[in-house]
Design a protein around this nucleic acid. Structure first.
Lengths: 335, 335
DNA sequence: TTGAAAGCGATACCAT
DNA sequence: ATGGTATCGCTTTCAA
């Protein structure tokens, strides 16, 4: 099966009356090439519409200029905004992301990472997930890894997360400042580090303001809309009194808001809601959601740059804007 | 620079006391290998933890088992749901998607496609975008292409879109059935085929029901929330009377809904809204949005399968569920 | 059934 | 400055 596509360096070389080595040198600027040959080569390349075969380059160089990205969901605004940042950072350096999905399932994540490694990605970006740090460190013996959503430090591994705790405290402080004292919390998955940090922030801020921690006001969610909806139902059934809900993430807040709507409870007149993430849509829901903004695009860029630096064995530092509370219209002042 | 990673077939061969060819045959089942050698090879592979170098296989086979996917936005629910379907279909066949973004910009799309081709993807999936059919047909001379959002038929190109027109008619019929006669329409980008089909559906259904087409009731949007918001403002300023809004897509509906909220106009009590797409969040906004559901996951799967078939030079047919109206709570019956 | 050897296409070292 | 040649690791004839 003759490949119909594309000329080779040898063909170009022959046509131009030079050696393949010279063509290669011209292509990569590896060494000086006489002006006259230069011109001939250039025109032959043009005429033959020659494009170097990346596959051969890859084999030779051992590098694919591809970065594997392990995400958890292709439909989540959270991951996708981060991904946009990653793509942005990689693009400039001529790298492309190979994206796979782990669906929050450690086994699947590991399997997809194996695939990525088999495909010889030059590096790996891991967005949260359920692998243990130990597993990731193990993988990092085979390929450089940058992770988000976990603190990690190794020879070829680096991970960072944002200060979810402080941001959660800030959100809670705001709620208290607005006069709320009975605040419900819809938690995220327990195994999730960020979710735990947010819960801790809720708890500690209550203490700080000398507000009694009421277990009945904390219900389990799952970071999905459905969890938020169920949580509010549970809250209502338990007949606890509360004037505000702090949802562990925006999706949860959406679900909670819907449950309230179903019961004709107004937001924020009757109950206030605060979310976490600041998804793209959060400024457009009704009422626009007051939530903690995660600078996900910047995080993505940062991950991309860090990856590139790591591959180049250069020093790098993480520098992303802090989490910040976006005050919109879902919280009402109570007296 | 000696590669620290991975043994080669030759090393395995040497250790096992056979030739590299035999190892290769064992690996690919290309030919029979004696049971005894088989066992030795297997154990050596195990011991050396040998993994064939995909780069070399790629070079040899000319194939990367990678499908390029041109999307327009990494943060759009519309594209991402489709992508999930594509990934699902490819995964089973050992293919992986290389995703790039065109941002609705023909030049950028073309440039990203060049990148994909340079990386020797085995095929290309194009999700809508602003390239002309002619451009795509041209690209398809270099690589097989399957496209969504445009009808296309070529030697190595195939494209299909869903019947947006009929679905738009259905949505409008529903609105009319519910007693609405003054229906505003917020259009999508004019150059967008689907957007035009939806507008046509709006117009024709009005005619079918003998309702006068009022130009003032049609305002331009951009498929984004902001467009919907602006559109409603414009509508209010023009002081037209209407009881319902048909938004060209869900994002537009979100924006419209927010604009209404800002003016304390209730949905659906004062004004009804119908969207198009059925994004994931649409069932969780308040009120849950009545909208046309696009079976995007299935579309993605279909695209993936079609691509695989095309690569294998096999016949295939497109079979996706039709668009359907999801009746939820954003439309009220008026008398 | 098996092995030797010739590529796949680009690159880099070693001469000249 | 330039050419010849070995090399990256695997696959696949061609012979035996």
């Amino acid at each position: 099966m003759k490949k119909s596509k594309g000329a080779t360096v040898h063909e170009v070389a022959r046509e131009a009356g030079v050696s393949a080595a010279t063509v290669s040198r011209f292509l990569n600027g590896t060494a000086k090439v006489a002006e006259d040959k230069r011109q001939v080569i250039e025109s032959v390349i043009e005429r033959l519409n020659f494009k170097p075969n990346v596959l051969a380059q890859n084999l030779k160089s051992g590098s694919t200029r591809t970065i594997g990205v392990l995400t958890q969901s292709l439909v989540s605004g959270f991951f996708n905004e981060t991904m946009t940042g990653i793509e942005d950072a990689l693009k400039a350096a001529g790298y492309a992301p190979l994206i796979v999905t782990g669906h929050w399932h450690a086994d699947e994540e590991a399997e997809r990472i194996e695939l990525l490694i088999a495909r010889r990605v030059d590096g790996l970006v891991i967005l949260t997930g359920n692998l243990t740090d130990a597993q990731i460190l193990k993988f990092s013996q085979r390929v450089p890894i940058v992770a988000f959503g976990r603190k990690l430090q190794g020879k070829q591994a680096f991970g960072f997360s944002l200060d979810n705790y402080t941001a959660a405290c800030e959100a809670m402080d705001y709620l208290v400042e607005q006069g709320h004292r009975n605040i419900a919390f819809i938690a995220g998955p327990e195994e999730h580090e960020d979710a735990r940090a947010r819960l801790a922030g809720y708890r500690d801020t209550l203490a700080k303001h000398k507000i009694r921690f009421n277990t009945k006001l904390v219900v389990q969610g799952d970071f999905q809309e459905s969890g938020g909806l169920l949580a509010v139902n549970q809250l209502m059934e338990s007949r606890q009194r509360f004037t505000a809900i702090f949802a562990a993430n925006d999706l949860t807040a959406y679900g909670a808001r819907l449950a309230l709507y179903r019961r004709s409870i107004r937001v924020p007149e009757d109950i206030s809601i605060v979310g976490f993430d600041d998804l793209h849509t959060s400024m457009c829901v009704t009422p626009p959601l007051t939530t903690v903004r995660q600078p996900l695009f910047e995080v993505g860029q940062c991950l991309g740059h860090a990856m590139l630096k790591m591959i180049a064995h250069e020093k790098f530092e993480i520098n992303v804007p802090p989490l910040s509370l976006m005050v919109r219209e879902s919280v009402r002042r109570v007296s």
